[in-house]
Design a protein around this nucleic acid. Structure first.
Lengths: 271, 271
DNA sequence: CACGGTAATATGTCTGACATATCGTCCGGC
DNA sequence: GCCGGACGATATGTCAGACATATTACCGTG
């Protein structure tokens, strides 16, 4: 069995949909849907056909369908089959859906900027909330992540993990369950930025001072300062991404805005 | 079959997890998990036990488990069974998870305010973005929803639907896929607010002028004005909810903050 | 006490069958 | 010729039973 590429395994922190048969199939079909292989309201292959294609039983295929339907990617009806749902129905903030949409090399630039704009809305506000609401424990988590960033500032591969931890720790320090839920967005975004940034040289540590400002403002309970510092950090990220996406961006979706470039004005995006 | 309470059916707009057997079971188990019946990392009943309990086959129970695992509520491992995951792992922005957590009468007040604060972060920013990015079509959608609100201002039951449409139309007018994904949060929140507000008298139309301000500012492409107007609208909502939740709030979670009331200062929450 | 083997157990997978809703088609009547 | 009901085809929905596999707990042996 396993007719496709063999053991591709993660080190740790596997996505919720992962290792077993149903997860594998869900990942393939899900990726295809977000990549536009199956257009909205278009039929995806039937259960029997997918059994044949993946060498799996119908139970497994059905379980994969349930995974995808829980994420808003498909909907099944008797007799008529299973159809891909339109983008508005997708659970865009779901970790898996985000990962599939931001998969290396295939992400459409428009969505990358949508994610950046959304982060520019949420994360500065979260930093401000964190400045007001942090506790000893949640502040320590931010500090720990920052310390690890300092230690790994020379190596982009090592830097990514504490960077993600830093941003998630800020969200956690808000104490707000909904804010914490954005961690998936930040994590997916940073994971992708690292991938596209790693194609170009340069030490990752350039963003260290900006992170330090965020941490310092939160520690001294300066909400306005934390907001501004996080915004500055995201502006830097935006400029980086803009530069890199411009040249390495999605080969698939170079359709409408031919000459016109997508403008990322993070400051105006928030207000 | 169907040993439990029979046909409870929705009129329209059913949640993604809905009508079939697996959806029914997922809804019950999912509700129980978010309600704290199964504590983090605690075992939920095994597949066989649930087969017995719901009079369903193991396939159906397993499909229900896949629905829940896709939403981050459970994780299964061989031999050890299936466990409820901790709150941080839940897909809090998922429409079903939100609906289960905000279910009438059972919502914990802390989470209700978390949702409000998050809306106070996202929706004013969305209004500002909508002011800049709206097109003829997306503006028309806002206008249509507002017109319907005016028409139904006398009846709280009829008012809820166009109110939700209004807020979702604003999100849609941003043209930002991530912002649009917040529609689930707004929808769940408004759906709940209507339920708790309907226990008290008063015409719903009091919020009409505030909605009008939002629409007017967006139409004239006044980003700052749209931001401020939406913020004012949410402040009003906060005051309403605060008043109502204070007296009708969750009977389950009256634990830590005994005398201290949860303060909803929306302005400071955003910055 | 340490260690290795073994049985018990819950999920993971497979198979084949039947149930049911729904679409397309065909046929007869008006 | 057009309309409407009957009927079969079809894809998902459900069921039942069996076996596979990983992991734990137990137990006996060195």
């Amino acid at each position: 069995m396993n007719t496709t590429s063999g053991g591709r395994r993660r080190k740790k922190k596997q996505a919720s949909v992962a290792v077993d048969g149903a997860g594998r199939i869900a990942e393939e079909i899900g990726s295809a849907i977000v990549a536009g292989v199956y257009k909205p309201d278009e039929l995806v292959p039937g259960e029997i056909e997918l059994c044949r294609r993946y060498g799996a039983s119908r139970s497994v295929v059905r379980e994969a369908f349930k995974l995808l339907s829980a994420k808003g990617l498909i909907a099944s009806r008797r007799r008529t089959g299973t159809r891909a749902r339109p983008r508005e129905a997708w659970n865009t903030l779901d970790a898996d859906v985000l990962a599939w949409r931001l998969k290396s090399g295939k992400a459409e630039p428009k969505f990358v900027f949508d994610v950046l704009h959304a982060r520019a809305v949420v994360e500065p506000a979260a930093a401000a909330m964190a400045a007001r609401s942090h506790t000893r424990a949640t502040l320590a988590a931010i500090e720990e992540a920052f310390a690890e960033m300092e230690r790994t500032a020379h190596d982009a591969a090592l830097y990514a993990d504490p960077d993600i931890r830093f941003h998630k720790a800020v969200l956690a320090a808000t104490g707000n369950d909904v804010m914490i839920a954005f961690g998936a967005l930040t994590e997916a975004a940073l994971g992708m930025f690292v991938r596209i940034a790693s194609r170009h040289p340069g030490a990752p540590g350039a963003s260290l001072p900006l992170h330090r400002s965020v941490f310092a403002a939160i520690r001294r309970r300066d909400a306005e300062g934390a907001h501004a510092a996080m915004m500055a950090l995201l502006e830097r990220t935006s400029r980086n991404v803009e530069r890199n996406v411009a040249r390495s961006g999605g080969a698939a979706s170079r359709k409408k805005p031919r000459g016109r470039r997508i403008v990322v004005d993070t400051r105006r995006a928030l207000l």
